[in-house]
């Protein structure tokens, strides 16, 4: 259906920054860059930057905070099931193991992926990209941008566990028989999801090509 046309760059690896241009990332207007001036897009009003300001510092800060929060998110109780008065608090991994014991392997896999694999992969991935920029490790740009796009894409799906808790807590609320309530780890886990998403947002992909 949609066929891709071969498209030629103006010069070999000439970036817009080197050519003194700045692109509005919102509406795709192109301007001549003026240094030391707060530029604004005359078309849509967005702030113009050749690169996102303090991109690496911000990404690092958000990443480190999310790694710290990840510890309570996994060790503390995320959900408490009170069945006929017996409390049964469970952690994230506990929930996955329970699903495995119930025999619903596909769902256990989905939950495990969304709430353990995805956050870990995201944090490791962002850290790897940042470190590879810092120490100029030889990863090809294609590998890095593919990894980053993947991270950006999967990020939202770790909200799954939070939604499941909110659904279960509202649904199973029969006093004296069964009550499901959220645990303190839910806040920590929500924090991890939000912070990793913000970290990915703050990273400027164009930096990958600048550091050559």
């Amino acid at each position: 259906m949609a066929k891709s046309l071969s498209h030629c760059p103006i010069a070999d690896n000439q970036s817009g920054k080197n050519a003194g241009l700045v692109l509005c990332t919102e509406c795709h207007s192109i301007y001549r860059f003026v240094a030391n001036v707060d530029m604004q897009c005359t078309c849509c009003g967005a702030e113009l930057h050749q690169r996102k300001p303090n991109s690496l510092q911000r990404t690092w800060a958000l990443l480190i905070t999310s790694i710290i929060l990840f510890i309570p998110a996994n060790t503390l109780t995320i959900m408490n099931v009170a069945y006929f008065g017996n409390d049964d608090p469970s952690t994230i991994m506990g929930g996955v193991i329970l699903l495995l014991q119930m025999g619903s392997y596909p769902v256990a896999l989905v939950v495990f992926t969304a709430s353990v694999l995805v956050p870990v992969f995201k944090m490791l991935g962002i850290a790897m990209i940042l470190l590879s920029l810092k120490y100029k490790v030889n990863l090809t740009d294609k590998q890095r941008i593919r990894m980053f796009r993947f991270i950006e894409f999967i990020g939202r799906w770790s909200m799954l566990d939070i939604f499941v808790i909110s659904i279960l807590a509202a649904l199973v609320n029969i006093k004296g028989v069964a009550v499901i309530s959220a645990g303190i780890a839910a806040t920590a886990f929500g924090g991890v999801v939000v912070l990793t998403m913000l970290a990915a947002n703050n990273f400027d992909t164009r930096l990958l090509w600048d550091y050559k």
């Binding site: 949609a2 891709s4 046309l5 000439q14 692109l23 992909t205 090509w209």
Partner: peptide
Amino acid sequence: MCHECDLLIRNQLIEEGSKIECPRCGHV
């Protein structure tokens, strides 16, 4: 100019239903 890698690319007219990808990073 490409969104994701800042490569300069010549603007050209394309036909209905087709797309342009960045030659360097593959961004549509």
